[in-house]
């Protein structure tokens, strides 16, 4: 399988504090890759670097064989789309409008209505609330909307930042089901998570980060079995 995202020896800092100290990882086509770690391990910083919100101080990030652009809209155009932490849906736009913002950069406008129907097929709840304001949805529904909005951009790689944060356990399971479902349709997934157990269950490959470094990696299964590893680094 060919490489989609390749992060090589990336360093980044906030002021003088080194948040990333030489991180390398990769995501292949069709894969679910989990990046795990406790608070402050540098997971979100890594995501900010990949999505051009933050500058790297060293190393390279390549998407489909090319260095990533420093303009967020070019990343989205190329197919690198983020489902941000805390959902960040547009509270004052309707569900339908939120989805249309997601599709805003697409060149194939004629396929947008079809994809809208597809997304409503995955999330029937959103169809029911199509004309409601995003801010009126429940937390779980907002997470679904954020995912649906990402799908509308037709990404090749979707990056999730803590999708289970602040959600009830039953909703968390639904979110992970959906992630598996869209992956099965061919979309590569990068999953930044604190909920290691759940993430490892669906991940093909996983990296464990601690204080700005990758300290372990392997297939989801391997890491799940290796309980000492998980408890040592993730504190579970």
């Amino acid at each position: 399988m060919s490489e989609l995202l390749k992060v090589t020896d990336v360093t980044a800092a906030y002021g003088g504090i080194h948040a990333l100290q030489g991180v390398s990882l990769k995501v292949d086509e069709g894969e679910i890759v989990a990046v795990l770690g406790a608070n402050g391990a540098g997971k979100s910083t890594l995501l900010k670097c990949i999505s051009a919100i933050m500058k790297v101080t060293g190393g390279t990030i390549e998407f489909m064989g090319e260095p990533i652009s420093n303009k967020p809209y070019e990343l989205v155009e190329k197919g690198l789309v983020q489902v941000p932490e805390g959902r960040q849906i547009f509270a004052k736009l309707t569900v339908e409008e939120n989805l249309r913002v997601g599709a805003g950069l697409r060149k194939d406008k004629e396929n947008v209505p079809k994809d809208m129907e597809r997304v409503y097929g995955i999330f029937p709840r959103l169809k029911e609330r199509e004309k409601q304001y995003g801010g009126l949805l429940s937390g779980g529904e907002q997470q679904m909307l954020a995912i649906a909005r990402g799908i509308m951009a037709k990404p090749k790689l979707m990056m999730f930042d803590e999708p289970s944060l602040g959600l009830a356990p039953v909703v968390v399971s639904q979110v992970f089901e959906v992630i598996k479902e869209i992956n099965a349709e061919g979309m590569a997934i990068m999953l930044i998570e604190q909920n290691a157990q759940k993430a490892l269950e669906i991940a093909h490959h996983a990296y464990i980060m601690q204080t700005g470094k990758v300290v372990a990696s392997g297939t989801g299964e391997e890491l799940l079995k290796d309980e000492t590893m998980v408890s040592a680094y993730l504190g579970e």
């Binding site: 967020p72 809209y73 989205v76 983020q82 547009f90 951009a153």
Partner: peptide, 13 residues
């Protein structure tokens, strides 16, 4: 969308 949440709008391209 920008008026509502400029940060999210930027991330979405």
């Amino acid at each position: 969308a920008i008026a509502n949440n400029a940060g999210a709008a930027k991330v979405l391209g």
